[in-house]
């Protein structure tokens, strides 16, 4: 086994990932079978709580050009849609009665965004679509409406606010990465709906906080973040490793 391919520690299996990113899983195992030590290498890259080699080493690459920016949006919409679908499916919801139908709307809007982007990417950039992401919501307590000061996990509203604010900042920051006006226009049509969602959820947590500045926010201006900064936050909620390095290149 080559030292250069060995993971440096159990928390950072990145050196293995480029291997898998470039070849399909089936061809990887054919390759692994023919290469002494490669299987052991793949297993060494797994952290303890992951049961299959593939889940540990899956690195999601987003490609380049407008397809990469659309796939970036598609990744975030997948996460949002999965989160709200889980909220909508709760048999006992901690949300207030008046909030439940609105959260059902949020779930539908995000599912529409996800399905629309998937369809548009497949139509206009065939073969570039990213895989279905596996959400990881273990930092969210779905029995809590809002987290208490002593809670370590997010409540449903806290998570919704995080997702919506992040989505707005992501679309705002990604706009300049588009090369064509068609997709910039579509992103603009989606981001203002995300901002409406964000304002609604924020008002539920703290009435009147629909556009309140936090941290380094500039008065009257929403946030904008690079894909790298967005994934630094979104990664918490996804099993696969998200690679922002080529988005918009």
């Amino acid at each position: 086994m080559s030292d250069t391919l060995r993971p440096t520690d159990s928390q950072s299996p990145q050196p293995v990932q480029p291997l898998l990113a470039r070849i399909k899983r089936r061809s990887f195992f054919m390759y692994a079978g023919a290469t002494a030590g490669a299987t052991a290498l793949a297993l060494a890259g797994c952290s303890k709580d992951e049961t299959t080699p593939s889940s540990a080493a899956t690195n999601v690459s987003f490609g380049t050009g407008d397809a990469s920016v659309l796939n970036y949006a598609y990744a975030l919409e997948q996460l949002e849609a999965a989160f709200y679908a889980k909220v909508a499916a709760l048999t006992t919801s901690p949300l207030l009665a008046a909030e439940v139908p609105y959260f059902a709307k949020l779930a539908t809007h995000e599912a529409i965004h996800r399905d629309f982007l998937r369809t548009a990417i497949n139509r206009d950039f065939g073969g570039t679509i990213i895989p279905d992401l596996t959400p990881k919501f273990d930092s969210i307590d779905f029995t809590k409406r809002v987290k208490a000061a002593t809670d370590t996990k997010l409540g449903i509203l806290d998570a919704a606010k995080a997702f919506e604010d992040l989505g707005v900042a992501a679309y705002n920051g990604a706009a300049k990465l588009f090369k064509g006006s068609v997709y910039l226009g579509i992103a603009g049509q989606i981001v203002s709906v995300e901002a409406r969602h964000a304002a609604y959820v924020r008002d539920l947590i703290t009435p009147g906080s629909f556009a309140t500045n936090e941290g380094t926010d500039v008065l009257g201006f929403d946030r904008q973040l690079t894909p790298t900064a967005v994934f630094a936050i979104a990664q918490t909620f996804v099993e696969q490793k998200l690679d922002a390095s080529t988005i918009g290149q």
């Binding site: 707005v168 679309y171 705002n172 920051g173 706009a175 300049k176 603009g188 981001v191 203002s192 709906v193 995300e194 901002a195 409406r196 969602h197 964000a198 304002a199 609604y200 629909f210 556009a211 500039v218 009257g220 201006f221 929403d222 946030r223 904008q224």
Partner: peptide, 15 residues
């Protein structure tokens, strides 16, 4: 980018 940062704030107002 700054114009879009204004755009989404207007959407928050509208909401």
């Amino acid at each position: 980018t700054p114009v879009l940062q204004i755009h989404s704030i207007e959407a928050r107002h509208a909401a």
